[in-house]
Design a protein around this nucleic acid. Sequence first.
DNA 1: GCCAACGTTGGC
DNA 2: GCCAACGTTGGC
Length: 141
Amino acid sequence: MRYWLFKSEPSTWSWDNQRAKGEIGEEWDGVRNYQARNFMREMKLGDLGFFYHSQKEKSVVGIVEVCAECHPDSKANDPRWECVDIKAVRSFTKPVSLDDIKQREALAEMILVKNSRLSVQPVTEQEWREICAMGETSAHK
DNA sequence: GCCAACGTTGGC
DNA sequence: GCCAACGTTGGC
């Protein structure tokens, strides 16, 4: 099982929009970048991902799960573009900001930091654990 | 709002 | 197949 990060502008598609879809989830449509698409092709059912708000917030706000593997993007009129479906799993009790991430030595090599323009990217297990620990206080397990 | 970094397109 | 021109993203 692998870990990922999905980036979205809240004004286009926010964490609230995503959560409103519940267990059904939603297509991660709109990706028009080969690197990002290729990562989605590698995703498997049950893989987990971070949901990141770009632009003003610049924070990881919650956790999502892949609930449909790669398929054609229903909103694209070009068959090259594909996407997975994801559903919200839970919200962070404390969103983890890009600043927080940059301050951690262990997270300095994240693609989020190194290549800010890639909207779908893999996350290592160590990075996953670190950010989960930062975002979820012990009070909420 | 600016601009650096990165992708894509198309002429040659 | 190269590369200049252009477009987009996202942090600042």
